[in-house]
Structure formats: C-alpha cells, structure tokens
Design a protein around this nucleic acid. Structure first.
Lengths: 294, 294
DNA sequence: CCCTTCTGTCTCTTTTAAAAGACATTTAGC
DNA sequence: GCTAAATGTCTTTTAAAAGAGACAGAAGGG
C-alpha cells in the first residue's frame, strides 16, 4: 500500500529537516515554512517536500494541521528501554528473563580469521553461530549474533537458546566468565536486521560487540548486538569525585532500566513492511518464546 | 566526477552484502558470486550489482580482481580513536588538548521546552548555543552541539571555545560540576553533520547526549555529540567480581585511548564531497585551530 | 463573512535511475 | 597458448522518481 524506500531527494530533505529539528536549530513547537515555501527554499518540487514531511510525521516529529501549517512536535518520546552502562551485563541477564526471544538461526560454521583471533581460538576450531532477536512487550529491540566455540556450544541445546540467556547457559556448564571487552558503535541496518527489528533498511542502529573470556584467557563468547536506538540505549549517571587538580568522573550506580514511557507513537507507526520483491532474502524460522524456569 | 547519493536498489544491495559480510555470514576472504550471478540471484541488473560492489570496494570491504573475481577483504580496520567508557570524560578533556577544534557556529537562543526541562532552567532563560567539530590529525570525528545557560556562557569568549574544552572553561569560571547524565545511542547523519564529519548523508553516527549539573542541581551544560563510528567508539573492559550467586561485572579501568592503527584505508577513501546542488545549506564559518596553553 | 493561506489530492510531463545487452580486458587453469 | 570465466566499459531501452500545476477543503484573521 506504500512504497518501501523513500527516494533520494525526499530522503535528503527529510534528513535535513530532521537534523534541524533534533539539533534545536528549529525552535520547538514552531511552525515550519509552508510546503510551497520549503519547496522553493530547497529547490525541489512540492511533492518531494511532501514526501519528506510525511516521513517526519510518521516519526512523530512534526504535526500537520490542514489550513494552519506544519508544527514541530515537541516531546520527542524518550527511550522505552534503557540499559545502565555501568553494569549493563546484569541488566541484560535480568532482561533476558523478562523479555521474549526469537531464535532466527542456529548452525556450526568455520571460524573466520578475525573471529579466531578475537576469541583466541585454536587453529581449525569450529564455532556455533546463532542469531536471536530480543523482544520486549512483543516488540523487537535487539538483534544478537553470537559465536561460541563448538566444544562449549554443545553443552546446551538449540531450544535452550530460545529461553535462557547465553551467559547463564555458559556458566551452568561450568565455565567461569572472567573478563570481557565491549565496544559500542553505530551502524546501518541491512535487510535482514531491518526486517527482524522492524525498521527501515537504511536505519541507524546502536551496535555493541563483546568478547567474553574465561580465566585461562580463552574466549568463550563473541557477541555482536544491534539495537534499535529508539527502543534501547545506554545510560550512565556520573558523579564527580576528587578535588580540583585530580577531578574525575565515576559511574554512579544509577538504578537503571527505566522502562517508563508508554505513549510512544510507535503503535501508530505504520508497521507496513516494505516489499522489495526482487531482492531475495533467506527465509528464517521463527521461534517465539517466553521465559520460565527458576 | 561522481554521483552523490547512490540510488535505491544499489543501496539496498550494498546494505545486504555489507550485512552478510559484517555478520560473518559470508566467509572471510571468500570469493563472492560473480557479478552476473549476483545480478540474477537478487533479480537486479548487473549495473546495479556493480554500483553496490563499487561502494563496498570504496569502504574497503571487498577487493576486486579483474578476470579473477571479487573477494571479501578480511581485516576490517579497527577504530583509530577509542574512548574508554569508564571515564570517558577525562579522556575527552585530554583529547581536547590533543586535537583540533573548529567552531562552526556560536549564538544565543531561546531555550526550547525540552532543553529548559533537561537543564532545569528558570523560565525565559536564554542559552548560548555553539557547534564545534573535533579533529584528530586533521580529520573530523565528532560534531558537538552544546547549550549553556547564558549567565554562564558569558564568562568565556567565542575564541575560548575554539581552543579550550568547555568543561575546563566552566570550571575556570568557578563552577563545580557535580553530576552528569549520559545517554548513548545512534542516529543518521543529516546534511550539515555529514558535511562537517566528511561522511555520506545517510551514514550511521554514534550519538551521546550529556547533561552536566552543579551541586545545586541546576544544569550547566547540555551536550549533544555525534561521532563517526569508524573513527571513534566507546570501549570498556569488564571484569567479573563476586562469586556465583552474586556475580557482577565491574568496569576494569582499561587504560583507554587506543590510538593505534594507521593503515586504515581512509586515506585512500575518496574525499569527494557530493554535490546536491538544489538543497541549500547554511554557510558556516570555519575556525581551524590547534591547541596551546599550559 | 469573506479572503488569504495552508494542507490534501489529483493529473501530466520531464528527468533520472535501472535494465538489457554487446564487447573489450584480465586472470586462472588445462 | 588456448579457453573459460571473471571484471571493466560502453550503448540503448524501459521503468520509476521528481517536477509542475490545478483544484478542493480546512483554519485563521480582518
């Protein structure tokens, strides 16, 4: 019922206006220039302006009143799910219990050179590769690609993965996580991730990659997580300790997981999945599931 | 000499292949299907496949050998600049001394409702608004939008902003930062930010917004930072402390700021700025500058 | 109340991207 | 050295996005 990917000029104007609104360059709650004005100002046709505004409106960033004008929607809904950075891990474990998980794929593969190095694998060692999607209130917010050495991966079943956090599975089988590295960055959503997270194809995602090591120094888990930034973000509260000269910020253990905010306009957001018929995509089995277990 | 924004289908295929490579779905160093094969597989023409591959190649993700095939470029260059998350602040201060800063804009504006609330401003209070770009080795990596209450902002000059970190300026004028909130997310690059950071218009950016409070509880700084994820990312090392039952991750103060890796293919990356002639953009004064001062 | 201005919704034309195919050039293998 | 198959580079045709304009309906101000 609607085209999938907005065309170039419209997208450009959309990003421009979005930038101006988010950066505070355009006053909050102010009226935007009229559509013909915007069209002339940016040297595009009104249809294009309209497409850009349509998208802003579907993002909930603007409100359009026929006969009156187009207005910046103040609020900017906050993040529904927020992870505390200081100990994101424990929260993730807790969250694993409160959220649903879909197992997208599960297989054993050869380690790529990069992965083998990061996990400090023995040469030729294989990896268990699984892809999961985490849901909260039935809505996906994270896409997890995990690689675990085969010798470790065999200690739990495919079904376990769909119900229990991986770290817990690992520790149940006697392994002791000792150290971990995390890198937080950003990337663009590809078609698979986009479909799984219900976002558009070029959307921005928060990415976290993590490698967990046991005491011996060998890697036991490699995780590449992709988050919808509108549903999940990292949150820290910092306190300044020490006096002038040696001042420094320390992470105040803010009781995180602010899970408020229910009026996000996401419900209203068209869940129309786009078509892109020619570009094929692998089929994927779906394993909806909700937790249980002590 | 080259078109600015890659067309839709090409972009889609680009994102698809990129996803498959980054997720490890396509084996490292493996040969991709031939261009005609990819064209048929995805139901697009070879020109489109070609455009997608062109972009992957310019990202350094693939290598094309005429007569032989197209191969996945293993390495995936690491981040040149990495910030330690545990005390990203002090590092930022240090970095402020080692890097260049460009002042993009400087003005006084009315506070938007959202900003007024976040900073806990008195009604009607105005804000000093400044936009800066941080460079390392002459290359931009962060775009900073700061809002400071006017009464505080007048204590330093426009030129100060181009040479000294803001937090230092604030503390020089007698203010004492006490607490801060940070939120880390991701967003898409708009035209202005894209131009300033030398990325494409729809690129993914790492975003951090921070509010700093003094002891009285009043906000003294609001920062919205946008980072190029290929040049800057957050890095943490975690250690697991406590025994089974009450296990928990604590941030091991990894001596961060890993500034290694010089062979990033970025030098070779075409710095061709795209044209987009009709879409206007505000002009911006540039204040190149390198540090000094004790 | 009327007039102006704004958004909403069409139609038609122009421009640009994508498709289809031909052909040259390079490499690897037999 | 020949052949098969790959990338590189064209040209022509077709499909899709963007442009241009007309017109209806809603809101606000004199």
């Amino acid at each position: 019922m609607s085209a999938a990917m907005e065309p170039m000029k419209a997208r450009r104007l959309y990003l421009l206006l979005r930038e101006q609104i988010l950066s505070g360059e355009v006053q909050d709650a102010a009226r935007l220039p009229s559509e013909p004005a915007l069209a002339q100002e940016h040297g595009v046709s009104r249809v294009t302006v309209r497409r850009a505004l349509d998208k802003l409106a579907s993002d909930g960033m603007i409100e359009r009143r026929p006969g009156s004008g187009t207005f910046v929607s103040a609020g900017q809904a906050h993040m529904p799910v927020v992870a505390d950075l200081a100990n994101a891990f424990t929260h993730l474990v807790e969250m694993g219990r409160k959220t649903g998980v879909r197992l997208i794929s599960f297989s054993y593969v050869n380690a790529t050179p990069a992965l083998a190095e990061e996990l400090k694998l023995d040469p030729g060692e294989k990896l268990q590769r699984s892809i999961r999607v985490r849901l909260i209130d039935g809505q996906p917010f994270s896409y997890l690609i995990t690689h675990v050495p085969e010798r470790i991966g065999i200690s739990y079943s495919e079904a376990d993965l769909a119900s229990t956090p991986l770290l817990e599975l690992l520790e149940r089988s006697g392994l002791v996580a000792d150290k971990a590295q995390q890198i937080i960055g950003a990337t663009l959503a590809g078609p698979d991730v986009a479909a799984a997270l219900d976002v558009e194809i070029g959307a921005a995602l928060l990415s976290m990659s993590r490698v967990v090591f046991e005491a011996s120094g060998r890697g036991i888990e490699h995780l590449q997580a992709l988050y919808r930034p509108d549903r999940y973000s990292f949150h820290m509260e910092l306190a300044r300790t020490g006096d002038t000269g040696a001042r420094r910020w320390t992470a105040a253990d803010s009781r995180g997981l602010t899970q408020a905010n229910e009026n996000n306009q996401d419900t209203e957001k068209k869940n129309a999945r786009d078509k892109r018929p020619p570009l094929k995509r692998r089929t994927k089995n779906e394993t909806g599931r909700d937790p249980s277990k002590p």
